Simulated scan of single mutants.
Amino acid sequence: MARIRPEARGGKSGAGRVRIIGGAWRSRSITFPAAEGLRPTPDRVRETVFNWLGQSLEGKRCLDLFAGSGALGLEAASRHAAHVTLVEKQHRVFAALRENAARLGATQCTLIKDDALAWLRRDTAVYDVIFLDPPFAAALLPAVWPLVGPRLAGDGVVYLESGAPLALPEGWALFKSARAGMVYFGLACREPAEAL
C-alpha cells in the first residue's frame, strides 16, 4: 500500500504524503489533508497501472476526474502527458492539489474545483486516458459511465478503481485488471463495434 505518513514536524495534523513513482518528478512527494473519502491510489497499484499504460504518456491528454491528492494525474504529468485536467470539489483538498502542482511546476495541468459529475456534463474535451477513482463509499461509478463515453478518444482507455469487483456497463470491455488488498483496479475500453 502507499506509504501514507504524517507530514514532517510542523505540518498539519492528519495530513498525508505520497511519492510520485516515475517520470520527471520521480521520488518527489505530494501532500494532502485528511478528508472524508480521500484515499490516494497505493504506490504498487500506480506502478502497475503505469506499466500497463506505458512508462511515457507523451502526447496524451488525460483526465483525473476525482483527483483527490492528485496522485494519478500528477503521475501522468510527470510521465510527459501533453495535458492533464484534474477535477476536485473539496476546498481543502483542492487547495493542497493547487499547491502541489505549483511546487512541481506542473504547467501542463489544469485544475478545476467542481463536482466531478456536474463538470463532466458540461465538458466538451476528448481524452486519451481517463482516471476514475471516486470515493469508494459514494458508489459513483455507475453514474459516471454514461458521461465518460463521449469524452473518450476512439482508442482511449479508462482506468477505474473500486472497493468492489469491477463491473462494466454494456459496450465496455476490461482488458487489464488486478487486485491489491481491498482495491480492485483495471483498464477498460469500448468494445469493438462488431462486438456490440
Rank of each mutant, 00 (worst) to 15 (best):
K60I: 00
K60N: 07
R61A: 13
R61I: 06
R61G: 02
R61S: 13
C62R: 05
L63V: 12
L63G: 01
L63K: 13
L63H: 13
D64Y: 09
D64M: 03
D64L: 04
L65N: 10
L65D: 11
F66W: 08
A67Q: 02
A67E: 05
G68C: 14
G68L: 10
G68K: 02
G68D: 10
S69F: 08
S69C: 14
G70Y: 08
G70W: 05
G70A: 11
G70N: 11
G70Q: 10
G70C: 08
G70T: 11
A71N: 09
A71P: 07
A71L: 09
A71T: 09
A71V: 15
A71K: 05
L72N: 03
L72Y: 09
L72M: 15
L72F: 09
G73I: 10
G73Y: 13
G73C: 03
G73V: 07
G73H: 11
L74E: 09
L74T: 08
E75A: 14
E75Q: 10
A76Y: 07
A76R: 02
A76P: 05
A77D: 03
A77F: 03
S78N: 12
R79M: 12
R79G: 07
R79T: 08
A82V: 01
A82F: 03
H83I: 02
H83E: 15
H83M: 07
H83S: 14
V84C: 06
V84H: 03
T85V: 15
T85S: 02
L86N: 06
L86T: 05
V87I: 14
E88C: 12
E88K: 06
E88H: 04
E88R: 05
E88I: 12
E88F: 04
K89R: 15
K89I: 06
K89S: 15
Q90D: 15
Q90C: 09
H91W: 05
H91L: 12
R92F: 06
R92G: 00
R92P: 00
R92N: 06
F94S: 00
F94V: 02
F94A: 00
A95R: 15
A95G: 03
A95V: 14
A96T: 01
A96P: 00
L97K: 05
